[in-house]
Simulated assay, not measured.
Amino acid sequence: MLVLLPPSETKATGGDGAPLDLDNLATPELNPIRHRLIEALSTLADDLPASLNALGLSERQAEEVHRNAELWEAPTTPALQRYTGVLYDALDVGSLSAAERARADTRLAVASALFGVVRGTDAIPAYRLSASSSLPGLGTLRGMWRPVLEPVLGAVEAPVVDLRSGAYAALAKIPGAIAVRVLSESADGTRKVVSHHNKAHKGKLARALARVVEEPRTIEDVLTVAKDAGLRVEREGDRGLCVVVDA
């Protein structure tokens, strides 16, 4: 099973790994695009105003641009430890047992505007680039990634649980993936999408799928794992699941 997580805008700083080596990352067929984006992003960092504008940042976030300037030299850390925020707090890989962490590294991957997709053990630096960004001279990330990323993700033979947000899902479609959405339900039964619950409960689902010993192989297996983890989950059609939380 492959559980595809959204990234986070926030990243843990530092790391104790060697500088980025694209040849050590999974899916090496993505390396030409990765290299172009890293070169463009690090070069753009020489022009702070242009970088802030392209990345949609304020002057108070200039440190994010400084990180991009050092992408080739900065220390790295495994991807599941690099991303932070609500979803990754709920995933809480640091509290997993050694066996659970091994399963997480095998089953979980993270969508990335810069790297396309990274596996849990892929050593990456801190960076700032969102799926909605457009870098000067390169056009949209969707236009760059879809031709190369869709074949890679489409070739995954195991079931894919797609937890990506809309902007990252647009970088590559995955036919047959199990789509998951999160809705809050009020006392009168009204349901609506809310971002905070979305992230936290997707993190809880990813944690449950990482921890279970037997490999989930069907949407029914995913449904069972989610319910066993205390999540209220409903089937939506052939390939969809809805996690329902109280408003």
Rank of each mutant, 00 (worst) to 15 (best):
G166W: 01
D92G: 07
V222F: 00
P75W: 09
Q81I: 10
A79W: 00
A172I: 06
G116T: 06
L138D: 08
T27K: 07
R211Q: 15
A98R: 15
A74F: 05
R217Y: 05
M1D: 01
I174R: 01
E150Y: 00
V194N: 09
V245F: 06
K192V: 13
K11R: 13
G15E: 00
L135S: 08
G14P: 03
R239C: 12
W72C: 09
A104F: 01
V225G: 09
G120S: 11
A54W: 09
L55R: 09
L149E: 01
S97A: 08
E234W: 01
A179L: 10
G85V: 05
L48V: 15
A99Y: 01
R36A: 07
A158E: 15
V222A: 04
L22T: 06
D188Q: 15
A200K: 12
V117M: 05
V180A: 01
S51K: 01
I38D: 06
Y83Q: 08
T43E: 13
V180Q: 05
G137A: 13
E63V: 12
E39N: 08
L71I: 10
E9P: 04
A90K: 09
L171H: 03
A109G: 04
S42H: 08
A40Q: 14
L149D: 02
A155N: 14
N198P: 10
L41Q: 02
L223Y: 05
E215Y: 07
K11L: 07
V243N: 08
R36Q: 10
P75Y: 08
L2Y: 08
D47E: 10
P136D: 12
P159H: 11
T140D: 04
L209A: 08
W72L: 13
P19V: 14
A74N: 02
I124D: 00
G240W: 05
A206N: 03
V233G: 13
L205Y: 09
V194G: 04
A206P: 13
S51T: 14
M144V: 12
R164M: 01
L138M: 14
A69Q: 06
R107Y: 09
E185Y: 00
T84F: 03
Y83W: 12
G15F: 03
K173A: 13
P125C: 04
A208F: 06
V193A: 15
I33N: 04
